[in-house]
Amino acid sequence: MRHVQVTEAKAAFSGLLAAVEAGETVAITRRGRVIARLVPDSPTMAADVFQPFWDHPEEIDLVVPDERPPEPVATL
């Protein structure tokens, strides 16, 4: 992981984005402390997020809420 000072990051932002796009992670630092990280995006499908639930459906106890009429809206 490459560490870059804020001032350098501001001056070379396009180059940093190109590096991140190529798979590199860049840490942005201020006074020697990491304040942000630029990381490559890894798209996640909703199906991937919920996969653990589908693998063990017996462990999930979902309850459908009772049907209720809509609440009145106050007018001003």
Rank of each mutant, 00 (worst) to 15 (best):
I35Q: 09
D55N: 12
E24S: 02
A12M: 05
H56W: 06
R37D: 01
E8W: 01
A22R: 01
T25S: 04
V64T: 10
E24I: 01
K10W: 12
G23F: 02
P43T: 10
P40Y: 00
E58G: 13
P43E: 14
P65A: 10
V64S: 13
R2N: 05
P69G: 04
T44V: 12
G15E: 10
D61P: 10
V34W: 06
F13S: 08
D41P: 09
L76F: 10
A22P: 02
D55H: 11
A27C: 04
A46C: 06
M45L: 11
V39H: 05
A18E: 09
D61F: 13
D48I: 13
S42N: 09
V49R: 14
L16E: 02
R2P: 03
Q51N: 04
P70K: 10
D48S: 15
E8T: 11
Q51T: 14
W54N: 14
F13W: 07
T44I: 11
V63R: 15
V20D: 01
P72D: 09
F50K: 15
R33Y: 01
V20I: 08
P57K: 11
K10C: 14
R33W: 05
V34P: 04
V39F: 04
A22M: 01
Q51V: 13
L38A: 01
E21A: 08
I35P: 07
P72R: 06
L17I: 07
